[in-house]
Simulated scan of single mutants.
Amino acid sequence: MQPDPATTALVIVDVQNDFLPGGALGVPGGDAVIPPLNRCASAFAAAGRPVLATRDRHPPDHCSFRAQGGPWPPHCVDGTEGFAFGAGLVLPEGTTLIDKGTRADADAYSGFDGTDLAARLRSAGCTGIVVGGLATDYCVRATALDGRAEGLAVTVLTDAVGAVDIQPGDGERALAEMAEAGCTLTTSEEICPA
């Protein structure tokens, strides 16, 4: 399913300090996603197309944290430095922020999970999304797959995602799963030429 550029939004997933190198759950080389995302965000905004950015906004006792029996160290706790977007990320004026994982008792990897992302896209007349951010094998994967489940054309920017790779190859397997679900895998240069 090929996206119509005129009705496609850019969704930047979780480019937050705790997912960048040095953060509580830093993705190795994760800061490499920032330049291509900045270029695409600028291009989308200049064309009058929606730019949305998801972020984990966890309470201190979130169920995904090890102290509550979850798999992860505390990360992206609301109000902390780790919660903030990476300093190098340039979000255009008018970017829509989508907070997820805000309830202590519910996890949310996907930008669609427990948010109004789908409704916002529909109200903007969007039929497709271009997705990049962190991490390939978790929140990018979940957001892309849920986008397909919502009937959207989904394009994943392979040069603007980074994987945790807890098991070696998790990122590559996630990309293959997204492609199998009908997502288009391409690069930011193809979508937003320099």
Rank of each mutant, 00 (worst) to 15 (best):
L175W: 01
G162W: 00
A144K: 04
E150C: 09
M178P: 13
V164H: 03
V154H: 01
Y138E: 02
R148D: 00
T158P: 14
L152M: 13
G182E: 06
D165V: 01
C183K: 04
A153G: 11
D170I: 03
L134T: 04
T155W: 07
V164G: 06
L134Q: 11
D137P: 01
G171L: 15
E172A: 15
A144H: 02
L145Y: 05
A179N: 07
C139Y: 00
L157D: 08
G169S: 10
D159E: 10
Y138L: 15
T184S: 14
A153W: 01
A153C: 13
L175P: 14
G182R: 07
T184G: 12
A176G: 12
G169E: 11
V140E: 11
G162P: 08
T184H: 07
G133P: 12
A142I: 06
D137I: 02
Q167E: 15
D146Q: 04
C183Y: 02
D170M: 07
D146T: 03
T155P: 00
P168E: 09
G162C: 10
A153Q: 04
G133Y: 00
E177R: 04
R173K: 15
D137Q: 02
V164Y: 05
G182N: 08
R148M: 10
E150P: 02
E180Q: 14
L157E: 11
G147S: 10
A174N: 06
G162M: 05
T155D: 08
D137G: 03
L175S: 12
A179G: 13
T184N: 06
Q167H: 08
A153Y: 03
A135H: 00
G182D: 04
T143G: 12
V154G: 08
G151N: 04
D146A: 13
G133A: 08
A179Y: 03
D170V: 02
G169Y: 03
T184D: 07
A142V: 04
G133K: 00
L134V: 07
V140R: 01
I166K: 02
G133E: 00
T143K: 02
V154M: 11
T136A: 10
P168F: 11
Q167F: 09
L152V: 13
L175E: 09
E177M: 12
A179M: 07
V164P: 00
I166A: 15
P168V: 05
R173S: 15
A160Q: 09
E177Q: 13
V140C: 10
D146H: 06
T136N: 10
E177I: 04
Q167M: 13
M178L: 13
A163R: 02
L145D: 11
T155V: 15
P168C: 11
D146M: 05
E180F: 11
V140Q: 09
V161H: 01
T143D: 05
L157F: 02
G171I: 08
A181P: 02
V161S: 04
R141Q: 15
A142R: 01
C183N: 06
E150I: 05
G147H: 01
T136D: 12
E172G: 14
D146L: 09
R173I: 14
D146F: 07
C183H: 05
D159L: 10
G171Y: 02
V156T: 07
R141W: 10
A153E: 10
G171V: 08
A160L: 07
A142P: 08
V154L: 14
C183G: 12
E177C: 12
